[in-house]
């Protein structure tokens, strides 16, 4: 069997020496690295509800489903590129920064628009429009029904 580690495999050693040799191999290699902690540090943080922050491994199954559904719904909301026309408003009320020409925007069914990154971050926490507090999914359903 192939093994890319330099240490001999347990099988080889047990043939040459007694079964006590297994311990010495483990000692030479040292304790296994704290693998899980490293993984957790790099994991993205999710917000199943406002004021709640969790890494993927801390989410309940229900929350994972909710997040997956939410991601799907968000991806169906229209996006646009700011072209300088004042029709869409000119400030993102989330970051309070002015829209710059060429920046990606997302337009909610209530016609309020925000920087795409700003609003997507909020929609993962609460599926409402920050400006009018209108629930986005209710508005989405009416759009589906009428079209």
């Amino acid at each position: 069997m192939g093994n890319c580690l330099k240490a001999q495999s347990n099988d080889d050693i047990s043939l040459l020496r007694g079964h006590d040799s297994q311990d010495s191999v483990e000692q030479a290699l040292g304790p296994p690295p704290p693998y899980q902690e490293h993984v957790q540090q790099r994991m993205p943080v999710y917000h199943p509800a406002p004021n709640v922050s969790r890494t993927a491994s801390q989410l309940t199954e229900e929350e994972q489903i909710k997040i997956a559904k939410r991601l799907g719904l968000i991806s169906h909301l229209p996006t646009g590129i700011y072209d300088g026309s004042s029709k869409k408003g000119k400030e993102c009320v989330i970051c309070m920064g002015d829209f710059a020409v060429g920046e990606p925007l997302r337009i909610l069914p209530c016609m309020h628009s925000y920087h795409k990154d700003c609003i997507d971050d909020w929609l993962m926490r609460s599926f409402t429009c920050p400006s009018c507090m209108e629930p986005v999914d209710a508005a989405l359903l009416t759009t589906y029904e009428t079209s």
Binding site: P50, N51, V93, I94, M96, C118, W122, S126, T128, P130, S131, M133
Partner: peptide
């Protein structure tokens, strides 16, 4: 808390 919105300041 519950009714917070990022449009508030």
């Amino acid at each position: 808390t519950d009714d917070w919105s990022p449009a508030l300041s």
